[in-house]
Design a protein around this nucleic acid. Structure first.
Lengths: 338, 338
DNA sequence: CTGAAAGCGCTTACAG
DNA sequence: CTGAAAGCGCTTACAG
């Protein structure tokens, strides 16, 4: 296993100086076309591969971006991460990715590692909890960092936030269930004190109170399993509850499974709506209503904003909210449309 | 935004030479404990961050591993990628990840980018199609590369393969449905000519022929939507078919949705089994039987094998198959157990 | 349009 | 146990 050729090898083989080779690599217009071709041919012959680490040592831009995700197994975050990574890739940036599994000490470790690797910027959907050390480290290292999806560190002037308008989305969802005829609507799933839950719950509360109704909170883990258990429990013990705004689609999909199990039909017997509009919503039966944050667009937007920051050195506004949209399907409508 | 401090700054501030600082960074036993402490304290004060790119320039091991995935939105691959990334992270390696979206030209591009970034090795679940250029590039660049999950490039001596024993898994699944009383079993989903499909289909064919039955192929996309459509089509046009071995869980979950829609009950009216055993299998109702490749263990194994290759420079065996296991649940059993 | 030289932030022998 | 010097593979002014 011999060493890879360097620009010096290429220069020798092509009979030019290494500066010229370097200029060719940078696609400088200064080099004569023939020389460019000669050098490229030589590089191909020698199997030359560009060494970014060396280049970076001088010129600072590593072409690496860090993506830190609290729960990569959750399809909502998977979609976000995948879309962002592909957007970076399309602009020539490679992505260093880490799942933190909602663990802030892991988060601290991976962020440290990314800084060492010289990422030019970091997009982080943070874990809840003891985040201070991590963000302080980012501040010290002066790595441009955007918080996305979750509002965790309060210093949005330092770490600009970009997140969907959860509050408004929950209002839309609640009003939709009221319009669909639901009389007693619960909010199911999500844990208090977490930014996304608080934002969505507050929208639900606002709409419920607006309608002069009593709110019903059934908070809990944001999992299919919690949704399924709640659907069954609720049908047995609170048969009068006839609608649910779920914290997210996983909870709603779990409720759907629960209803299937006990023969209750969402849409006809119960008005159900999720949040996030993951792909599966339109692939299950009955199809699940949801609030879309257009996660693909959102992720692409986030990526573009990050790249804009890196390339213009102009920091994005401290807080920015992405649009949300109601997507009504059978689980809240009851007829076999859509 | 001033420059980050370097080891020279640290050395000056601590009153030692930069070599000493370097040795401290490498945790060399040569440095006196007091000196170590002094240097560490100084680094903390100055907010020093290690520059791996520079270190790598001399010492070769970048501490970066590439992970190339054909479809990161598919939960099976998400689980694989996430587990592998976390295993690398636990050993101090950062992961550069790219989704290729089943696109071999994208795959070529991201692999090139990873090589430039100096990854020490690459774990690739390749896209089907025109993969030659990509693997040739890897061979030229001499980057240790393992193919996982899919057997695409035939040169396993160069690019060792690690994949689940799909053939055996499909035999287990088919025999299980026969034991459960199914008389006419179809194979649903998957596209011919792709290694995973071919391996699973061949297992099904072997078991069906062994039982003296006629095989029924209903190949197609590996999506929930295809599964749902097939379930409905099959119930209308082939009511005698009473069992299905699905290419993967997504197809089977789609069939489950389809059955829910038309009021047919998997388990009681139809014996259904998926493949991969993703988490959702035990979260839906009725719970979905599947063949587990123990994807978490598999991914951890793959990561360990890769790291072993990097650290011992000993290439893994050309072909290695991971174990598979039948997981029988309600969708093939019919009773409300498990 | 091309070449010679310095330097990016580390590590690595080699002295002492 | 610590220091002085060379070098990793590039880029960047600066000449010519």
């Amino acid at each position: 296993m011999k060493k890879r050729p360097t620009i010096i090898d290429v220069a020798q083989a092509a009979g030019v100086s290494k500066s010229t080779v370097s200029l060719v690599l940078q696609e400088s217009p200064l080099v004569k076309a023939e020389t460019v071709e000669l050098v490229r041919k030589t590089m191909a012959q020698l199997g030359y591969v560009y060494n970014r680490a060396a280049a970076n040592l001088r010129s600072a831009n590593a072409g690496l971006i860090g993506l830190v995700i609290n729960d990569l197994r959750n399809p909502f975050f998977t979609e976000f991460a995948t879309t962002a990574q592909m957007a970076f890739s399309a602009k020539g940036y490679a992505t260093v990715l880490a799942n933190t599994d909602e663990d802030t000490s892991l988060q601290l470790q991976v962020v440290g590692s990314m800084i060492e690797h010289g990422v030019s910027g970091i997009l982080i959907s943070p874990s809840y909890g003891d985040e201070r050390l991590c963000f302080d480290l980012l501040a010290r290292a002066q790595v441009p960092t955007m918080q996305v999806l979750r509002h965790v560190d309060r210093r949005c002037d330092l770490f600009p936030l970009f997140a969907p308008d959860n509050h408004r989305g929950a209002i839309l969802a609640t009003e939709h269930l009221l319009d669909a005829g639901a009389k007693k609507i619960a909010f199911v799933g999500g844990l208090e004190g977490r930014s996304i839950t608080d934002e969505r719950l507050s929208g639900y509360l606002e709409a419920i109170q607006e309608a002069g109704l009593e709110p019903i909170r059934m908070l809990g883990r944001s999992s299919r399993t919690f949704g399924r258990e709640t659907a069954i429990d609720l049908s047995e013990n609170h048969p009068d509850i006839d609608g649910a705004v779920c914290f997210n689609d996983l909870v709603a999909l779990g409720m759907l499974s629960g209803f299937n199990q006990i023969g209750r039909q969402a849409g006809r017997d119960f008005k159900l709506i999720g949040f996030d509009d993951i792909e599966e919503c339109s692939e299950v039966w009955p199809k699940l209503s949801s609030v879309s944050c257009d996660i693909k667009d959102f992720a692409a937007e986030a990526a573009v904003t990050m790249l804009g920051w890196l390339e213009t050195a102009k920091k994005p506004e401290p807080v920015r909210r992405g649009g949300v949209e109601l997507v009504a399907r059978m689980s809240s409508l009851g007829n076999v449309s859509i």
